[in-house]
Computed example of a mutant assay.
Amino acid sequence: MFHYKAFGLEISSEIELPGMIEGSGVPDVKIIQGEVDQSLVTGAEVEGPNYLVTGQDVYLWWDEIGKVRISKGELVTVEPASDLESADELNLIPFILGPVMALMLHQRGFLVLHGSAVNLSHDIVQSNGFPSAVAFIGHRGNGKSTTAIHLYVEGYPLVADDILAIKFSEDGKPVVFPGYPHVRLSDEAYHQVKRHTDILTPIRTLAGKVFCDASHEFSLEPVNLERIYVIEKVQPDDGIKTGIYVLKSQETLIDLIRHSVANRIFQHTTQKDNLINCSQLVNNVKIKRLEVVHSFDDIHDLVSAIEADLE
Rank of each mutant, 00 (worst) to 15 (best):
Ile137Trp: 00
Lys30Tyr: 05
Gly55Ala: 11
Ala189Gly: 07
Ile257Asn: 04
Ala102Phe: 03
Val112Lys: 00
Leu225Gly: 01
Trp62Val: 11
Ser215Asn: 15
Ser295Thr: 14
Thr201His: 13
Lys286Phe: 10
Ala87Trp: 14
Leu185Cys: 07
Ser169Pro: 03
Phe95Asp: 07
Lys209Ala: 06
Ser116Arg: 00
Leu302Tyr: 04
Met20His: 03
Ser24Phe: 12
His139Ala: 11
Leu158Trp: 01
Leu113Thr: 00
Gln126Arg: 13
Gln38Arg: 12
Gln250Pro: 00
Glu10Ser: 11
Glu22Val: 13
Asp198Ile: 09
Ser304Cys: 13
Glu14Thr: 10
Asp57Phe: 05
Ser13Glu: 04
Ala207Ser: 14
Glu221Ala: 05
Cys212His: 00
Ser116Trp: 02
Thr42Arg: 15
Ile287His: 03
Thr197Phe: 07
Val176His: 00
Glu307Ile: 14
Ile231Gly: 01
Ser295Glu: 13
Ala135Pro: 01
Lys144Ser: 04
Val293Gly: 04
Tyr4Met: 06
Asn91Val: 08
Val134Cys: 06
Leu310Gln: 10
His182Val: 00
Ile276Leu: 11
Cys212Trp: 01
Glu251Leu: 08
Asn274Glu: 09
Ile265Phe: 13
Lys288Cys: 09
Thr42Leu: 13
Leu185Glu: 03
Tyr152His: 09
Ser145Arg: 02
Leu97Ser: 06
Leu310Asn: 13
Ala81Tyr: 11
Ser121Trp: 00
Leu9Gln: 00
Ile70Lys: 03
Asn283Gln: 14
Val193Glu: 11
Gln107Phe: 13
Leu253Ala: 08
Arg195Val: 10
Ile244Arg: 03
Ala214Trp: 00
Phe130Val: 02
Lys30Val: 11
Val159Phe: 00
Val230Gln: 07
His216Tyr: 13
Tyr59Asp: 05
Leu97Asn: 03
Ser12Ile: 03
Val41Lys: 06
Thr201Trp: 10
